[in-house]
Simulated assay, not measured.
Amino acid sequence: MGFGKRQLKILERARQAGSARIGDLAVELGVSLETIRRDIRPLVEAGDLLKAHGFVSLARQDAEAPFERRMRENLAAKQAIARHVAAGIEDGDSVMMDTGTTTSVLARELRGKSGLTVVTNSSDVARTLATVNGNRVYMAGGELHGDNGGAFGRSAIEFIASFRVRHVIISISAVDPVGGLMDYQLAEADFARTAIRCGETSSVITDHTKFDRRALVRVAGFSEIDRIVTDAPPSDAISARLRDAGTTLEIAPALPL
């Protein structure tokens, strides 16, 4: 069965996160709740989605968790970004990272460093860098999200707010020329917004697929971060906004084949 553009976006969103709130989908796609429910109905009837309590989720999932699947998406780009960013982090530096597939890839690249002080809300980042090479890892507490293993909420935000680190590095779900840096989840946006204020330098790392996307929650404007590191140039509209904001754009070299 062929589906329309909105329905394909609904499926993509469900694949990215494992599930999605119907109200959030309506806002994200700029349609009414009645319209989004009409779009969802054939997806449920075809067996692609399950619908319950205001959410939709994938009906056909294998044993691999959504976060693990997202880790493998555009992996070469994420690895190139991670290697470029890691080259600017020295032994003994202090680093704050949020939860995200690109920051998880960066954590693996940082295993070659020693004596790092790492502050994070990501259980994956914490596991990757703790107890190796003399690192000290501080893990924020709070409500744990089952998909990505990240801690969120007031206690996580209050915890990181007490730190001042050399590098803050956050991931992002969408980069919009008008909206700026955006995320689909309020809790993740709140955490990232606080983290940006905790560093001597702040970097957003994201592969090019996040450009010219619009999400539900605004994290920050371009002028609030020092640089964006990505794998391919963004659109002219985003490039112009970055120049106007004085934000550095760095394109990570592709990894050798």
Results as ranks from 00 to 15, higher is better:
210 K>A: 01
28 E>Y: 04
79 Q>V: 13
229 V>H: 08
90 E>D: 08
149 G>L: 10
208 H>I: 07
59 A>Y: 09
183 D>I: 00
95 V>D: 02
157 I>Y: 12
216 L>A: 09
159 F>V: 09
140 A>K: 05
238 I>K: 05
211 F>R: 05
16 Q>N: 06
15 R>D: 07
251 I>P: 11
232 A>F: 12
64 E>D: 03
71 M>Y: 07
223 S>Y: 03
239 S>F: 01
120 T>E: 05
55 F>R: 09
191 F>Q: 11
37 R>I: 12
234 P>Y: 04
125 V>L: 04
70 R>N: 15
102 T>A: 13
1 M>H: 15
11 L>M: 07
180 G>N: 05
186 L>R: 10
7 Q>H: 06
154 R>K: 15
121 N>Y: 09
172 I>C: 10
48 D>E: 15
49 L>W: 04
29 L>K: 03
80 A>G: 13
96 M>G: 02
152 F>I: 13
236 D>Y: 14
136 R>I: 05
80 A>Y: 07
168 V>T: 10
143 E>L: 14
176 D>F: 11
59 A>H: 12
176 D>I: 13
85 V>G: 01
79 Q>A: 11
120 T>F: 07
95 V>S: 06
21 R>H: 08
126 A>E: 05
203 S>Y: 04
252 A>Y: 08
110 L>S: 11
184 Y>N: 01
149 G>H: 01
143 E>P: 00
46 A>E: 13
78 K>R: 11
105 V>K: 14
16 Q>W: 02
145 H>A: 02
165 V>C: 00
186 L>T: 04
231 D>N: 15
249 L>I: 15
45 E>P: 00
16 Q>V: 13
134 G>R: 11
153 G>I: 06
66 P>H: 12
14 A>Y: 03
57 S>N: 09
81 I>N: 00
52 A>N: 05
84 H>S: 15
196 I>A: 00
194 T>R: 15
161 A>W: 10
188 E>S: 14
80 A>P: 04
256 P>A: 09
173 S>P: 00
139 M>P: 00
167 H>M: 03
157 I>M: 13
189 A>C: 06
18 G>F: 06
193 R>K: 02
124 D>S: 07
244 D>A: 11
95 V>A: 04
126 A>D: 03
71 M>A: 04
119 V>H: 06
67 F>I: 09
85 V>L: 08
181 L>H: 02
65 A>H: 15
27 V>H: 10
1 M>P: 05
159 F>Q: 06
9 K>P: 07
138 Y>L: 13
44 V>P: 00
67 F>H: 03
179 G>T: 05
